[in-house]
């Protein structure tokens, strides 16, 4: 055996677990799911080839799909900008050289770390129930709050608030980004009499665009994939009246409540296309608004 191929063999041994996973758990299943998306399959009888029928039904004849798309887009469109706006505002405040920064940063980060737990979704359900804490606080200022969780007009907002509550991790990334901006840029600007407002729009924001871009992509993809809170708050139904039927929740129901595996596989591929579309659009538009140092 030549030396080079002995080296190759050794390297492949290190990669053996990864290769096993890559082929058995990633590539193989990806191809299989593409195949399944063109079949009707209930786990009992063999998959039956039905051509593009699943995709046709998704596109033309599935009210739940449309509902889940609406809910998910609404959630993404509200939760992501609010969360990022909040994260940026707090990061700016923390970046003013204030005392106690580590403590504040830790407090704001904690919800990010806890938020994915069922325990928090349980808490949320109780906070926003008719007789919950939120309505008690609102009553103090004379507002009679609705029964947030069980009212289809409001239930989605409780999930938006839950998402915004977890602004800690994008905030930490913003904070790291703000620290990268050289201090003398601001000094020069303020010597020339630029107002704080002008400095924000002309210095901070442009120099921060790469970080904003990164956070926006990560948070958007994450929002598209949200599952647990909607599942817990609606007891797995996506209700009331499909108002919290997130895309992933609908996919879960099709696959694991009704065992329509072929249809669910097609839904998964549509999700991939949606996410890929948004990512591609972001990268294309990034050329016009993301400022990179040359």
């Amino acid at each position: 055996m030549s030396r080079a191929s002995a080296n190759d063999t050794r390297a492949y041994l290190f990669l053996l677990p990864w290769f096993a996973g890559f082929f058995c758990l990633t590539t193989g299943p990806t191809l299989a799911s593409l195949f399944l998306s063109f079949t009707s399959f209930d786990l009992i009888q063999a998959p039956r080839w039905i051509g593009a029928a699943n995709y046709v039904r998704i596109a033309t004849n599935d009210v739940s799909f449309i509902a889940s798309l609406k809910v998910t887009f609404f959630f993404v469109a509200f939760a992501v900008p609010l969360k990022l706006g909040f994260a940026l505002a707090v990061a700016m405040a923390l970046n003013k050289g204030i005392r106690g920064l580590p403590l504040y940063r830790a407090i704001f980060y904690l919800p990010s770390l806890l938020g994915a737990s069922v325990a928090i979704a349980v808490l949320w359900r109780k906070l926003f129930s008719g007789d919950g804490l939120v309505n008690k606080v609102l009553a103090l200022v004379g507002i009679h709050g609705p029964s947030w969780i069980s009212d289809p007009d409001y239930s989605i907002y409780t999930l938006v608030v839950l998402s915004v509550w977890q602004f800690g991790s994008p905030m930490i990334i913003f904070l790291a980004g703000l620290r990268q901006i050289p201090h003398d840029v601001y000094e020069a600007a303020s010597l020339e009499g630029a107002s704080k407002r002008r400095q924000f729009f002309k210095i901070t924001l442009p120099l921060l665009t790469p970080v904003i871009f990164f956070n926006a992509i990560v948070q958007t993809i994450d929002a598209f994939k949200a599952f647990t809170p909607a599942f817990i708050i609606s007891e797995g139904t996506g209700g009331p009246v499909r108002s919290t039927l997130f895309y992933t929740l609908y996919l879960y129901q099709e696959a694991f409540a009704y065992f329509r595996m072929g249809y669910a596989a097609a839904l998964a591929w549509v999700l991939v296309l949606i996410i890929a579309f948004f990512t591609a659009v972001s990268f294309i538009t990034a050329r016009y608004w993301v400022h990179y140092d040359d």
Partner: peptide, 26 residues
Amino acid sequence: RFKGKNFWFALMLGTLMLPYHVTLIP
């Protein structure tokens, strides 16, 4: 150092982009 290192590395990074929903059912 091994043959195809860049190729496999790129594929590995590519799997980062794949939502788990695609592989879920198979």
